[in-house]
Design a protein around this nucleic acid. Structure first.
Length: 173
DNA sequence: ACTCCGATTGTT
DNA sequence: ACAATCGGAGTA
């Protein structure tokens, strides 16, 4: 899939090469785990599938999720890395680096910064509205993605819900 | 009201 | 190894 933004009238887009799934209330690592329930922050996770859930982590960075569960069933996929397809110069400008690959767009905070995405887009539709768009990519994804445990989580640390293209230079690690 | 911690990143 | 920086959970 491709994630594209037109924030500030500037087009940036990238192929998603790394994700993590947060499956629902029964997932203890989810922001919408049953023990937590609905809060102001995670409200978008309870919305319809196909909208964005954008949250701030460590009070510093933004992270982009695609909401996947039906309304009132909170589930989402965290976009952990993209491979730039359009506007890589704009991405470098936003990121404040001349780097490419992992340092430019590998990691959820880096993805959001490169695309210019903030909480202003929390709850935004991803199916064709301006600003943020998720769409299929015509090029085939090689074979099947590598699978492993999610990064940085302490609860359910062994659940194999991270999916990535092994060897891709943009993958976070 | 207060403490602790997190789906991270950049610098020392 | 550690700071930045803040919402929410847990505790009182």
């Amino acid at each position: 899939m491709v994630l594209a933004s037109t924030v500030g009238g500037r087009l940036t887009a990238g192929r998603i090469v790394e994700t993590e799934a947060y499956t629902g209330p029964e997932d203890p690592a989810s922001h919408a785990a049953a023990r937590i329930g609905r809060t102001r922050r995670n409200a978008s996770m309870f919305g319809p599938p196909g909208i964005a859930y954008v949250y701030r982590i460590y009070g510093v960075h933004w992270c982009i999720n695609v909401v996947t569960g039906d309304a009132d069933h909170p589930a989402a996929v965290l976009v952990r890395a993209i491979e730039p397809m359009s506007g890589s110069d704009i991405m470098r400008q936003r990121r404040g680096t001349d780097a490419a690959g992992r340092v430019l767009t590998g990691g959820p905070g880096r993805v959001a910064q490169a695309l210019g995405v903030t909480s202003a887009l929390d709850g935004h539709r991803l199916d064709g509205e301006p600003l943020l768009l998720l769409r299929p990519h015509r090029a085939a994804i090689p074979a099947s993605p590598a699978i492993g445990p999610r990064i940085g989580v302490t609860r359910a640390a062994d659940w194999p819900l991270r999916f990535y293209l092994a060897g891709n230079p943009c993958v976070s690690r």
